[in-house]
Each structure stands twice: as structure tokens, then as C-alpha cells.
Design a binder for these strands. Structure first.
Lengths: 145, 145
DNA sequence: GTGCGTGCAAACGGTTTGCATGCTT
DNA sequence: AAGCATGCAAACCGTTTGCACGCAC
């Protein structure tokens, strides 16, 4: 993505716009995350990048992900394992989480996105996000049990 | 609750039914959790029980909560802080979580509970729970900022 | 050249585990 | 009397932090 002419997302540009220096580590971490569809953890990303960047430190991955999330370049997702996991930002979606294998599947539900909240919420405050989290057993795990 | 004649929930009975021995620690931990409305963590419960049970070990609280959750006596709730927190089981509800103070408010939304999932979920597997998690800033925190 | 970003190592906090003792059944 | 539950201490694991060097700007 270094020199992409904005094909998908001009990372270098967005990075600088956020006031961050463009480094190889940041480029690669973002790219790996962008290509991942499974909400990897910091450790998982570190593992995957070991071939490309053998010297990459795990704490750099943590720091980078935190920085990206703070700058709004990526989203942090709370999961079943009480473990911080991350995702490249894409469209509004909800989560199906398998209790067994931990896999997280996204799904969209525009009907809900547009629905207004029930009265008993009242004027709780300012709402930033509204997400459904569904737990269960995915098809694979159901068949292997 | 030890000798309550089933006024709210006969803990001793339910405990034995689940194959668990009834101990003072378990009774007190359950009772404290039942009286709590703020989804306390294991550490918070431990702290609150210090007066009643000065010798109660923190790991006992962890073990007890895990045991209860496994037996279905209580629910485990995933929260903003990536921290396991617990709640006594009450009626079906959803969560409003304040990013600032971490407070979790419950609300009900039967319309959603009864709604059928969108088509794109397909036959993902077996669904155990379906919860909405709303993040934002509660009224108190909004006014103090 | 300035200062942010990185790698290294050590600290940290919540949670889990091994073991011997104690209490429920 | 038998065995699960507890307390204690140590281990564990994911994450954060302090520091000095190195690279982007």
C-alpha cells in the first residue's frame, strides 16, 4: 500500500493526516489488518508479520494498534475472551461469536440500525454505538461436538 | 438467604441441585451479587465482602463466580474494559455502557428479543444469546465534561 | 538536527493453578 | 469417612511502561 494511488485507502496520507509518522512497521501492521477478516489480536498480527518483519516487537504492535484506534484509523472490538481484538474499519455491522472456537462473524442488520431505541432507555446520555453481540456455537463447532 | 423459604430464590436448593456444596462463602458471594445492581467484578465483590468475611480469598471469589456461571446460576457479562464482570440472572435485558465511568445500565427491548434475525446470518449455527451493547456517555459524565 | 517511533526488558494487573488443610455431605 | 471447597502462594498471560537508540521529517 505504500505507493498505492488511493486504490483502496491511502494509508500514508491518512497516517500523516492523523499526525503520525509513516514507518514500515505501521504500514505493514495496517496492511495485515486490512487483509485479515478474522479480527486478529495483537499477538496474532505479530505472529503473522514475523516472516515479513522478523525484528518487529510485540509491544510495537500493541502500541501501534492503540495509536491507530485512538486516531480512528481502526476499530477496537470487545470479544468473548475479554481480549482486545482489532479490525480494519468497514461498514456498520454486528457480531456472531462462537463460544467454542472464538471465531467472530460479522453480519449487517440495517433494520436494527435504523430502529429507534425503546422508551425505557430514556435520556441516558449520548449514544455512540449500538451493536448486537450474538453468542452461540458456529456450524463447524456444532458438527464437531 | 440461607433459610429463606424461597422468598426470592432458594439459593441452597439451587446450589445443591447444581451438584454444588453449600458453603458460607458461596452463600455470601451469591447474596452480594444478587443485591448488587452494578455488575461488579470479582475484585469488587471481594472488596465488598471483606467486612463480612475477612478471610475470604480473592481466588475463591474467582472460582466461585466461574463455577456459578458454568452451572447457570449467574451470567457473565463482557464489558468495555475487557474485564470479566458478573450479574445475578434477572430478566432478559441489554446494556448501555458509559465509556467514561464504566457504569452499565440495563434496559429491555422486547421488540428486538422477538425479532427474527436478518437473512444474511443464514444458518450460522446455534444461537444462545442475542444482546445489544450500546456505548456512549451517560448523562452524568456528559454534564461533567 | 529534532523528536517521534521502535526494540528491549522489566513491571503490571487480572486471572488461574497446585497443594495442603478444612468443612459439607 | 470421603471428597469437594477454601486459603495461600506462585505461576500465568496479555498488556503497559521506562529507557536508550534509530529513523522519519
Amino acid at each position: 500500500m505504500q505507493n498505492s494511488k488511493g486504490k483502496y485507502f491511502d494509508f500514508d496520507k491518512e497516517c500523516r493526516k492523523a499526525g503520525l509518522k509513516v514507518t514500515l512497521q505501521r504500514q505493514e501492521i495496517f496492511e495485515e489488518l486490512r487483509l485479515s477478516t478474522d479480527h486478529p489480536s495483537a499477538e496474532a498480527l505479530h505472529e503473522r508479520l514475523r516472516i515479513k518483519l522478523p525484528n518487529l516487537a510485540l509491544d510495537t504492535v500493541y502500541r501501534t494498534l492503540t495509536t491507530f484506534a485512538n486516531k480512528g484509523l481502526i476499530n477496537r472490538v470487545e470479544t468473548a475472551e475479554s481480549l482486545g481484538r482489532y479490525e480494519a474499519i468497514h461498514s456498520r455491522h454486528h457480531h456472531l461469536i462462537c463460544r467454542r472456537c472464538g471465531e467472530i462473524k460479522d453480519f449487517t442488520w440495517s433494520l436494527l440500525d435504523e430502529a429507534s431505541l425503546p422508551d425505557n432507555v430514556g435520556n441516558w446520555g449520548r449514544i455512540d454505538s449500538k451493536n448486537i453481540v450474538i453468542y452461540g456455537l458456529c456450524d463447524k463447532c456444532l458438527n464437531n461436538s
